[in-house]
Design a protein around this nucleic acid. Sequence first.
DNA 1: TTATCCATGTAAGAAGTTACATGATTGA
DNA 2: TCAATCATGTAACTTCTTACATGGATAA
Lengths: 193, 193
Amino acid sequence: MNVRTLCLGILSLGEASGYEIKKKIEGPFNHFYEASFGSIYPALTRLTEEGMVSCTKHAQANRPHKKVYGLTTPGRLAFLDELTSMPRPDRVRSEFLVFMTFAELLPTRHLSRVLDEQVGYWRAHIAELEAGTEKPTAAGHEFVCGFGVAVYRAALAYTEENRYRVEAANLMAEPAAASPALTTRNAQIQPVD
Amino acid sequence: MNVRTLCLGILSLGEASGYEIKKKIEGPFNHFYEASFGSIYPALTRLTEEGMVSCTKHAQANRPHKKVYGLTTPGRLAFLDELTSMPRPDRVRSEFLVFMTFAELLPTRHLSRVLDEQVGYWRAHIAELEAGTEKPTAAGHEFVCGFGVAVYRAALAYTEENRYRVEAANLMAEPAAASPALTTRNAQIQPVD
DNA sequence: TTATCCATGTAAGAAGTTACATGATTGA
DNA sequence: TCAATCATGTAACTTCTTACATGGATAA
């Protein structure tokens, strides 16, 4: 699954321009997929060359021209075919969790700030998803929004209930720069050629 | 945050070879970070050149040589510096959720299989994390494992409680290939040059 | 005897991001 | 006047994955 396939998927819901596709990805998709213009435009060009999508140019008064793309039958079949395979395992890259792993090394204030910001993100995501779920559309869409809310709520609740643990451990740990345990260890190792 | 920085982080917990670093990333880190040998080895080479890590070669009987890396003071400072910035927003790429978004287009049996497998993944992840948490180490590590369990449990519970919605909607939807709504639309659009 | 573990590394390529280039309109 | 929205696109770059190359030891 790549931006290419995601474009096919979005176009299966209706015609759209590259710009509009980007906006749609920034909607609920944003929570589990990202794509920039720099990947969307080339993908659409290639899909057009391959006959997966059709392209109609619309001249607009006082606006740049707009290219509206629509799925062709081969494009629809290709997307359906993709959906008939097994999805690859989810990939998560969380810098927040890397930071938490090394919580004892962070300056105390910074640790709290990182936690506060993260909690803020989740709250905002939940609010956004709940606002979007008010107008129910397709079953799949609703499922995914509900999923997002459930997972973000769990992350939020867990963090609010357990952050004191890392914050307490951080207070106990000596400041990184002054800790002998941290600076002594590599004195024993010297580069060898 | 990249593989480079993650290597520094892992080395801050103790010396290790490239192979061992990879194994450690495959442990609890695996749930929120991935790295292959193809990214770890070049990263370590570069870090050595830059003086961020030291490297000691160990000859082993009946084994390939082993290069054990250790953090140097500049490396430790660089990592600490990284931890003093704000973490970037988490990135999730979930093909499973893309599939669910388009649940109505999947063959019914396939949809159920996808859901079953996903539920299986989560169960396995939870079991693995719970096995790892039995031997508590650092506070940060425990927090992260507990976080993983909480989030996976939420995902699992939500999916088990709500999968019937997408499965029911899928049954209602006509098979994609036979649906007139799906094939008629793009008959109205013709490529324009 | 077959697979897995240990152990390092390179090279090619995929995939995507960021920054740039262009430019009118609209709202604060 | 300044930022944001609409609108498309390219080019350089980063980052990482996959596949390959090598090869002994050990366990099933």
